[in-house]
């Protein structure tokens, strides 16, 4: 039940893109075509989940015992950067097909603030899923990260679908491109507000 709450909350209620504004740059950058949006979402899903697990363990078994939590930001970003590199290399060797699909998006992910954002949120924020306020344990953190990434993918793919249509419609000149995309995102965010309060 608690996991279900985490999932619904992370995908719909606190959608990472439309409610928390993490990872908006690539959201606007690669969402003009449905196929690239799908690829990016897949890569983000993969990296967010992996990075959160690794940084969670790093934080719990290295930084906290050594009293070095002030190094969270710097160590997390280094872990994420090397992880992305490693995933790229491994993927290339092990699954060329998947690499073809996700490969070009991987280098972009290091500077996607959604990854660092989720990793930091998980180790610094208390949650109230299932009653009391508590820090997430590893299982919950993993589910939270994965669900958040799914929410990212959902918003991204929906948005890309809309933008493909926008590209064909007659938009006033000053609105063309990003402005109308942002306004569309605003309307989507409004729709997602409707989910608030259900968890």
């Amino acid at each position: 039940m608690e996991y279900l709450l985490i999932i619904v909350s992370a995908i719909f209620v606190n959608n990472i893109l439309l409610a928390q504004f993490l990872g908006v740059c690539p959201f606007l950058g690669v969402s003009s075509k449905l196929s690239t949006a799908t690829g990016m979402s897949g890569a983000v899903c993969f990296v967010i989940t992996l990075a959160t697990v690794v940084t969670y363990l790093l934080n719990k078994y290295l930084l906290i015992p050594l009293g070095l939590t002030f190094l969270q930001t710097i160590s997390f970003i280094l872990v994420i950067a090397s992880l992305v590199q490693m995933v790229e290399i491994v993927l290339k060797k092990v699954s060329p097909g998947l690499y073809q699909a996700l490969g070009i998006f991987l280098p972009l992910i290091t500077t996607n603030c959604a990854v660092l954002g989720v990793a930091l949120t998980v180790v610094t924020k208390e949650f109230t899923f299932g009653g009391e306020a508590h820090m997430l344990n590893l299982g919950e953190a993993t589910v939270y990260a994965f669900a958040t990434a799914l929410g990212y993918g959902l918003a991204m793919i929906l948005f890309a679908g809309i933008r493909e249509h926008l590209a064909l419609s007659d938009v006033p000149k000053a609105f063309k491109g990003l402005p109308v995309a942002l306004i569309t995102a605003g309307i989507m965010a409004m729709a997602f507000l409707g989910f608030s309060g259900i968890v």
């Binding site: 949650f127 109230t128 009653g131």
Partner: peptide, 27 residues
């Protein structure tokens, strides 16, 4: 069954309680 931190002074107690609000924890 739940522990809450508090501060004791000679005029009373200041108890800190966290509950679940609309957007998350409310302390």
């Amino acid at each position: 069954g739940t522990e809450y931190p508090y501060y004791k002074t000679d005029t009373g107690y200041a108890v800190m309680v966290t509950t679940s609000g609309f957007g998350g924890p409310l302390t």
